[in-house]
């Protein structure tokens, strides 16, 4: 199972991932032609507003759309030289919770209400370690609970999720995800439901664990601050598509896509002087059943008309080297607009 990377392929490589759902209202084009990669020891941040396709992307990597009969997944997902879209259900199942693991947004609903926290972690450990006794699994679980900073782990082992505080619950979920030393950890908005103080603790923990185990991390969030704290690379998603992709420093300091500008303009920042007014994106996010023609962002983009009619008719491709953008505006034009019109208002 553990083939070592010999080729040039990154540890996780996603190519042209497309996910659609057939619903009564029509086809939901949840993710279109997404491509990205993460190396071991690195963190990829995925940002975007709700409904932009972040969770669907991560669930696709774990193969969790397979149980939904209305989901269609296309493209390639390479994890350590193994292709996952075409792999059998059983092969993917063995990777889940083993080589790749996931943490979810709402830790209360992510825990089974009728099983103790300990039992749920033990179960995850034993399914990947056949023949390990219950006692050994228990010891391992308690170690893990202690490692993620849960006090009195022996006592906590026998408690239920609802008896934990929000922060402790998320710690327990992290312990559950990490119990098999995964090499890829996907965290889907792990701190959205938590207070900033607890968020800081959890992010700190994830950073620590990554340093310790050298795993690849995908951090999904809608908070640009969280991405800036953790990510080496950033994907910005809009309407199911990646519209900007690049190293965190580039994306934050020289953002190239009008939507990214809008996101930055929308958030008040503690590290800057108070602005008189925020500069939000106008309008609302599109429906994924009925995406606008051309650039999906055009109904909300202040620059849509600047480059002839292309924005209205032609879907912009994600283009560029390390820092890639999906927008028809010429590169110099984008740079100029950012520095002259956008940056002064941030």
């Amino acid at each position: 199972m553990s083939s070592t990377t010999t080729g040039t392929r990154p540890f996780l490589e996603v190519k042209d991932l497309t996910v659609r759902f057939e619903t009564d209202d029509g086809i939901v084009q949840a993710v279109s032609n997404s491509s990205f990669a993460v190396e071991r020891g690195k963190t990829l941040g995925i940002v975007g507003e709700s409904g932009s396709g972040k969770s669907v992307t991560s669930l696709a990597v774990l193969g969790l759309h397979r149980t939904r009969s209305n989901a269609k997944v296309a493209g390639e997902i390479w994890l350590d030289d193994q292709e996952l879209v075409t792999a059998t259900d059983e092969d993917v199942r063995k990777l889940r919770g083993g080589k790749m693991a996931m943490i979810f947004q709402d830790p209360l609903s992510a825990m089974h209400p009728y099983y103790t926290v300990g039992a749920q972690i033990v179960e995850g450990y034993r399914v990947h370690h056949k023949g390990v006794s219950k006692k050994e699994a228990r010891t391992r679980t308690i170690d893990m609970l202690a490692r993620v900073g849960i006090p009195q782990p022996e006592k906590r082992f026998n408690e239920y999720g609802h008896q934990f505080s929000g922060g402790m619950r998320q710690r327990a979920m992290i312990a559950m995800a990490l119990v098999n030393d995964p090499q890829l950890l996907i965290a889907d908005e792990p701190t959205t439901a938590l207070d900033v103080t607890v968020q800081a603790q959890i992010l700190d923990l994830i950073r620590d664990l990554q340093d310790e185990f050298g795993s690849a991390v995908i951090m999904i969030t809608h908070d640009l601050g969280v991405v800036a704290e953790l990510a080496d690379d950033v994907l910005v998603m809009y309407g199911g598509k990646i519209i900007e992709r690049g190293p965190a420093a580039d994306v934050f300091h020289e953002p190239q896509h009008p939507y990214t500008w809008g996101l930055l303009g929308s958030m008040p920042r503690l590290d800057r002087d108070v602005r008189d007014r925020l500069t939000p994106v106008k309008g609302t996010p599109p429906s994924l059943i009925n995406l606008p023609d051309g650039c999906a962002f055009h109904p909300r983009c202040p620059y849509a008309g600047r480059n002839g009619n292309r924005s209205f008719t032609e879907v912009p491709e994600l283009r560029g080297g390390v820092h890639a953008v999906a927008c028809h505006l010429p590169a110099e034009e984008k740079r100029r607009i950012f520095h002259e019109e956008v940056a002064p208002n941030l």
Binding site: V196, L203, A228
Partner: peptide
């Protein structure tokens, strides 16, 4: 502590923000 916990949307300040952070323990 509360203010230092707010993540700063600037990767260049990441190190400094983390160094200066007052991490509260417990709930």
């Amino acid at each position: 502590a509360l203010m230092s916990a707010v993540p700063v949307p600037d990767p260049a300040r990441r190190e400094r923000a983390q160094r200066n952070r007052v991490l509260l323990t417990g709930d």
